[in-house]
C-alpha cells in the first residue's frame, strides 16, 4: 500500500468520523442529559439527506437545499419530541428503544412512499465539484475536504458552547445530575427541548452533507445510527469529548479496515477468499473494538460523571 493510498484512506476515515460525530453528538447529549435512547436519530439523518437533496434539486442549488434542510430538521425533531418522546422520559430504556423503533418504521416507510426506493442522485455541490491535489498522486474531492472542515468547525463550536458557556454548564450539569439541576430552579424541560432540537438539526446537517458523497436511499439512517451508538458507547455516554475521539477512531477503523483487511488476509489466504474474509472482518472490526472497550471499561472511555 502506497503512502498516497494510505493518506486517501486516512482522509476518508476522518470524513466518515466527522459525519459520525455530528450524528453521535446529538445522540450522546440527549442520552446523557435526558437518559433517553432515541433510535429515530438515524432516521433524522436520513430525512436531512432527503430534504436537502430534493429541495436542492428543485431550487437548483445544493447550498439552498442545505440551508432549507436545517430548520426543517429542527422542526421535525421538535415535533417528534412533542408527539412521542416526551411521553417516554419517565419510562425505562426498553420502552424508549421500542417506541422509537416504531418511529423508524414510520419514517422509513414514509420516505419510501414519498421518494421511492431507488437511490436519489445528488449532484456535486456547485463550487466544490473538482478535486484538490494534496500530494503527488493524491487528488482528493474538494467537497469531502469541505465536510471535514465544516465538521471540525461544528465540533469546535460545540466544544465552546458545552465547555465555555453558561448554557453548556447547565447541559453538563444536567448530564451528571438532572434532579439536582431541577432543584436549583432550572427549567430542564426547556433545556431538554433545546438539546433534542439541536441534536436533530445536527443529524439533519450530517445527512445533508453526506448526500453528495453516499447514496441517498431509504434505510441509510440505520447503518449510521448503529455506528453512532458504537461511538457513544465507546466514548462514554453523555461525553462530547468522548464522542469526538470515538467517532474519529471508529471512522478510521472502519475505512482503514475496509481498505487493508483484504490485503492483510492475503498473507494467509488466496486472493478470492482473502477478499471475502477481509470484507467480513472489516465489517466486524468496529463492533469488535466496541466489545473490547466495554470488556475493559464497562462505562466507555470518558464516562460523564454520574455520582
Amino acid at each position: 500500500m502506497t503512502a498516497s493510498l494510505l493518506m486517501l484512506q486516512l482522509l476518508n476515515g476522518l470524513q466518515l468520523g466527522i459525519l459520525l460525530f455530528l450524528v453521535a453528538a446529538g445522540l450522546t447529549l440527549v442520552f446523557g442529559v435526558m437518559d433517553f435512547i432515541n433510535l429515530a436519530h438515524g432516521a433524522q439523518y436520513m430525512l436531512g439527506a432527503y430534504l436537502a437533496a430534493s429541495i436542492g434539486g428543485a431550487l437548483g442549488s445544493f447550498w439552498l437545499g442545505l440551508l432549507a434542510a436545517l430548520p426543517l430538521s429542527l422542526a421535525f425533531g421538535l415535533a417528534l419530541e412533542w408527539l412521542v418522546f416526551r411521553h417516554l422520559y419517565a419510562r425505562d430504556h426498553l420502552a424508549q428503544v421500542l417506541a422509537t423503533f416504531g418511529v423508524i418504521l414510520v419514517i422509513d416507510e414514509g420516505v419510501r412512499q414519498l421518494w421511492g426506493s431507488a437511490p436519489l442522485n445528488v449532484p456535486q455541490p456547485e463550487g466544490f465539484s473538482g478535486g484538490i491535489t494534496l500530494m503527488a498522486g493524491l487528488t482528493y474531492p474538494s467537497f469531502r475536504l469541505a465536510i471535514i472542515v465544516a465538521g471540525l468547525a461544528v465540533a469546535a463550536l460545540m466544544w465552546l458552547v458545552v465547555e465555555r458557556s453558561r448554557l453548556g454548564m447547565l447541559i453538563r450539569a444536567g448530564a451528571s445530575n438532572a434532579p439536582m439541576v431541577r432543584a436549583l430552579g432550572v427549567d430542564t424541560g426547556r433545556l431538554f427541548l433545546g438539546v433534542i432540537g439541536v441534536g436533530a438539526m445536527l443529524a439533519g446537517f450530517a445527512g445533508a452533507m453526506a448526500g453528495p458523497v453516499f447514496a441517498v436511499v431509504p434505510g441509510m439512517g440505520d447503518q449510521v445510527l448503529i455506528l453512532a451508538f458504537v461511538v457513544i458507547v465507546i466514548g462514554g455516554i453523555g461525553s462530547i469529548r468522548g464522542a469526538f475521539i470515538a467517532a474519529l477512531a471508529v471512522g478510521l477503523v472502519e475505512s482503514l479496515g475496509r481498505a487493508m483487511m483484504p490485503e492483510l488476509m492475503r498473507l494467509f489466504l488466496d486472493a478470492a477468499p482473502a477478499r471475502q474474509a477481509g470484507a467480513a472482518v472489516a465489517s466486524m472490526l468496529v463492533y469488535a473494538v466496541m466489545a473490547a472497550v466495554l470488556a475493559w471499561r464497562p462505562a466507555g472511555l470518558f464516562p460523564a460523571a454520574r455520582a
Partner: peptide, 20 residues
C-alpha cells in the same frame, strides 16, 4: 443501556459474518 448496546454489537458481528 450498555448491555443493550453490546448485545446489539455482537448481533451485528454475527450478521456481517453470515453475510460473508
Amino acid at each position: 443501556v450498555y448491555f443493550i448496546m453490546i448485545t446489539l454489537a455482537f448481533g451485528q458481528m454475527l450478521f456481517f459474518t453470515l453475510s460473508a
